Simulated assay, not measured.
Amino acid sequence: MRFSSQIKPISYLKSHTAEIVKTLSDSREPMLITQNGEAKLVVMDVKTYEEQMETFALLKILALGRREIERGEFESVEDVFEELDGTAER
Rank of each mutant, 00 (worst) to 15 (best):
S5V: 13
S5R: 10
S5C: 10
Q6W: 11
Q6L: 14
Q6V: 05
I7F: 01
I7E: 03
K8C: 10
K8P: 01
P9F: 05
P9H: 08
P9D: 12
I10L: 09
I10C: 03
Y12N: 00
Y12H: 02
Y12L: 00
L13N: 00
L13T: 00
K14R: 13
K14L: 04
K14N: 03
K14S: 02
H16W: 06
T17Q: 08
T17G: 05
A18F: 00
A18R: 05
A18K: 06
E19P: 03
I20M: 08
I20T: 01
V21M: 06
V21R: 06
K22D: 11
T23C: 07
T23E: 14
L24P: 03
L24V: 12
L24W: 03
L24Q: 06
L24M: 11
S25I: 11
D26E: 15
D26V: 13
S27K: 09
S27T: 14
E29S: 09
P30G: 09
P30E: 04
P30W: 10
P30Y: 08
P30S: 09
M31F: 14
M31R: 07
M31W: 14
M31A: 10
L32Q: 04
L32D: 01
I33E: 00
I33G: 01
T34K: 07
T34G: 02
T34C: 10
Q35N: 13
Q35M: 13
Q35E: 15
Q35P: 02
N36T: 10
G37P: 04
G37V: 09
E38F: 15
A39R: 12
A39M: 14
L41C: 05
V42L: 13
V43R: 00
V43H: 00
V43P: 01
V43I: 15
M44G: 01
M44V: 03
D45C: 13
V46G: 05
V46E: 13
T48L: 14
T48D: 05
E50F: 13
E51V: 06
E51W: 08
E51Y: 08
E51F: 06
Q52I: 04
Q52N: 11
Q52K: 12
E54D: 12
E54Q: 14
T55E: 15
F56V: 07
L59P: 02
K60C: 05
K60Y: 07
K60M: 04
I61A: 06
L62E: 09
A63V: 06
A63T: 09
